[in-house]
Amino acid sequence: MRNIILSRGTASDIERQVNKVLRGLGNPEPPLRLDDVRELLSLDRRYYSTTDDSPLRETISKLTVAGAQIMKRPGLILDAVRKLDLRALYLPDRKRILLDSAQPDAKQRWNEAHEIGHSILPWHEDLMLGDHEQTLTPGCHQQIEAEANYAAGQLLFLQSRFGTAANDSAPGLDAVRALKSAFGNTYTTTFWRFIEDSHRDVPMIGLIGQHPRFPIANQPEFRHIIESPAYKALFESLPTDRLAQAIRTYCEYRKRGPLGAGEVNLTDRRGEAHVFLFETFSNTYDCLTMGTYQRPYARVVGL
């Protein structure tokens, strides 16, 4: 799945809502404490698991605003959690966030911030509680999820604080690793944020997926492809097999840690070739590859 770049107007609306929260917390230092955010917003947090869904059932039994459809068919939420493999959800009428207790703490932090994102965007409440046909379309669902992700990133990375810190270092996985520790977030979310929101004039592409040397049958090479605004402006989206082939030219068979780096030529929208530095890191369950623009490709013409 390729990342969605929000319109400037939508991004600005989200940034204003997040800024209210951060100002209410006194513009805290990183890492952000989500307990403080929940207290400020009067949000309740509970946990559930696929083996114990009693928190979900209790919540469903007390729904008062979500409409007759939920009350008459309480299995809707339970079915959604199980079939869609949901890791978290937000129920606006209870101001309650439900998190999957089976997820690692670092992932729960992002999941919780994502649901807080839903809670602070006023137009999401209407979409989540409503019964409009619009809310059922895949395009609408992807849009509101992208908006909640953007809000989560703005929160966890303290808006411009992250961009300032990221721009003080050269683009690359070393910078991502340092910022991960500083802001207390996962490698993956820091990686994503770095590509989308730093070095705005540098084309960058990020790939998250399986190990190129140990592919798993019947699974896509990449779960996510993140293209920076500068990349989207100048380059076409490449097919995944082309990207996977480029990574395999330098990638080692090691299961964990740095897997190598190499220069890869990519062609822009005008048909001109450019050199990117690709580097790949494995955290055992995902491989993260960052491609950073280096220079125009100079052909060597024989004498």
Score class of each variant (00 low, 15 high):
residue 150 Y to T: 07
residue 169 S to W: 12
residue 211 H to M: 10
residue 76 L to A: 04
residue 184 G to E: 02
residue 198 S to G: 03
residue 205 I to A: 05
residue 20 K to N: 14
residue 32 L to V: 07
residue 62 K to Q: 15
residue 120 I to E: 07
residue 184 G to T: 00
residue 153 G to I: 08
residue 5 I to D: 05
residue 33 R to A: 12
residue 176 V to F: 02
residue 128 M to S: 05
residue 251 C to H: 11
residue 275 V to F: 00
residue 90 Y to D: 01
residue 270 R to Q: 12
residue 187 Y to F: 13
residue 97 I to F: 01
residue 212 P to Q: 13
residue 149 N to M: 11
residue 120 I to H: 05
residue 34 L to W: 02
residue 260 G to R: 07
residue 209 G to F: 00
residue 225 I to H: 10
residue 119 S to V: 04
residue 241 D to L: 02
residue 287 C to G: 02
residue 247 I to Y: 11
residue 8 R to N: 14
residue 67 G to P: 00
residue 195 I to C: 09
residue 99 L to T: 00
residue 109 R to H: 01
residue 154 Q to Y: 02
residue 210 Q to F: 05
residue 185 N to F: 02
residue 229 P to G: 08
residue 61 S to H: 05
residue 213 R to H: 07
residue 144 I to P: 05
residue 200 R to S: 15
residue 79 D to W: 09
residue 177 R to K: 05
residue 164 T to E: 15
residue 258 P to A: 06
residue 199 H to W: 08
residue 136 L to V: 00
residue 142 Q to C: 02
residue 95 K to W: 03
residue 163 G to E: 10
residue 57 R to L: 05
residue 93 D to Q: 00
residue 266 L to M: 08
residue 140 C to L: 09
residue 192 W to A: 08
residue 244 A to P: 04
residue 300 V to C: 15
residue 213 R to D: 03
residue 285 Y to E: 10
residue 20 K to G: 06
residue 200 R to L: 15
residue 41 L to G: 11
residue 222 F to L: 05
residue 78 L to N: 03
residue 14 I to Y: 04
residue 48 Y to C: 06
residue 240 T to L: 03
residue 18 V to D: 11
residue 99 L to A: 00
residue 245 Q to S: 11
residue 267 T to V: 11
residue 173 L to E: 06
residue 13 D to M: 07
residue 93 D to H: 00
residue 155 L to N: 02
residue 254 R to V: 12
residue 83 K to D: 09
residue 271 G to N: 01
residue 144 I to K: 09
residue 297 Y to T: 06
residue 110 W to Q: 09
residue 223 R to M: 11
residue 213 R to G: 06
residue 189 T to S: 11
residue 113 A to R: 02
residue 114 H to M: 01
residue 298 A to C: 06
residue 125 E to M: 03
residue 6 L to A: 06
residue 134 Q to M: 11
residue 92 P to N: 04
residue 205 I to L: 14
residue 31 P to I: 15
residue 67 G to W: 01
residue 15 E to C: 14
residue 231 Y to L: 08
residue 52 D to I: 10
residue 292 T to E: 04
residue 9 G to V: 08
residue 224 H to T: 13
residue 237 S to M: 13
residue 198 S to I: 11
residue 54 S to L: 14
residue 123 W to Q: 14
residue 9 G to Y: 13
residue 54 S to T: 08
residue 73 R to P: 01
residue 233 A to K: 14
residue 244 A to C: 12
residue 47 Y to M: 15
residue 184 G to Q: 06
residue 11 A to S: 12
residue 213 R to Q: 10
residue 62 K to R: 14
residue 153 G to F: 05
residue 163 G to Q: 10
residue 158 L to K: 03
residue 52 D to Y: 13
residue 174 D to C: 02
residue 95 K to N: 05
residue 246 A to G: 15
residue 51 T to L: 10
residue 65 V to Q: 12
residue 294 Q to F: 14
residue 195 I to V: 14
residue 219 Q to W: 04
residue 278 F to M: 15
residue 247 I to C: 12
residue 240 T to K: 07
residue 109 R to S: 00
residue 75 G to Q: 10
residue 10 T to A: 09
residue 266 L to K: 05
residue 269 R to K: 14
residue 91 L to F: 00
residue 24 G to H: 05
residue 2 R to K: 11
residue 261 A to L: 15
residue 151 A to H: 04
residue 300 V to E: 15
residue 213 R to N: 10
residue 255 K to E: 13
residue 22 L to V: 06
residue 152 A to P: 01
residue 251 C to P: 02
residue 238 L to R: 14
residue 20 K to C: 06
residue 191 F to Y: 09
residue 252 E to G: 12
residue 290 M to A: 13
residue 61 S to C: 07
residue 294 Q to A: 10
residue 126 D to T: 13
residue 67 G to T: 01
